[in-house]
Design a protein around this nucleic acid. Structure first.
Lengths: 129, 129
DNA sequence: TATAGTGTAATAGGAAGCTAATACACTAGG
DNA sequence: CCTAGTGTATTAGCTTCCTATTACACTATA
């Protein structure tokens, strides 16, 4: 994987797994890949994967069954809460950062719209070739 | 200061100083606070401040004059580039994250607008009391 | 020219994160 | 019962970040 060297790897692993759960790619109750398998596919040590799992288990998003595997919680409320928190946290992060740069509310929205439009155009022209 | 324990402190210091430069609170050519002063006000070691400054100097945003102080570059192009990069980087970060959560373009914009509106309402009701 | 204010460098020590390696505990299935 | 697949724990060693401390280099000015 492509890790940001400014953030602990175990934390980034937690992030990508949470993202997959929230996106529905890992359904409630579904079995996660085995820790050793995850370690290989992420090119990372088993202990690092375990560190990420430990926190996900503590937070009730994953349940662990020794000898069987790790499973996504079946409690959809937990997942929905996670989803909302994550969205809000990311919006807040963008908002406060741009605000510190003296960019006001309307400008922040404009910047995002422009960014998305530019991106759409670029995808389009890439698709043509 | 209030540091995020997931990101190196020196990197966060760089961030806040860049933000102040971009926001215009630190004008081109202006003298930065002395390293020892910064260390005290950030409750951090001088070497940590120096580490942040070293990178800002390497990137041409700050110039250093031994015995005199550190100064914001007078090259406004550098600052403008910094500003644009920073905005784009943050928009990209939000966009790609929400996209990974299966939220499409229009929804991303809606989420941001809603967030800003909610925030405005809360500020208003706080102001009343 | 002395002194206060500034940047810079270097050392030592501690904490956190990561890797590597090994071992142990439990489950499912032949 | 044995074995393969799984989670968990422990130890040792390395690197990065941070702190504390001391020292040195340069500038401005009284």
């Amino acid at each position: 994987m492509n890790f940001d060297d400014k953030v602990p790897i175990y934390y980034q692993i937690k992030t990508v797994i949470y993202d997959r759960i929230i996106a529905g790619e890992l359904a409630p109750g579904e079995k996660l890949p085995a820790v050793r398998q995850l370690a290989v596919s992420l090119t990372v040590n088993v202990n690092t994967v375990q560190r990420a799992l430990r926190e996900m288990i503590e937070e009730g998003v994953v349940t662990s069954q020794r000898g069987r595997g790790n499973f996504v919680t079946t409690d959809t409320n937990v997942i929905e809460t996670l989803r909302q928190d994550l969205i809000t946290r990311n919006l807040k992060q963008l908002y406060e950062r741009l605000h510190r740069l003296n960019i006001d509310d309307q400008e922040i929205i404009n910047e995002l719209v422009t960014y998305i439009e530019r991106r759409a155009r670029q995808n389009e022209s890439n698709g043509k070739n």
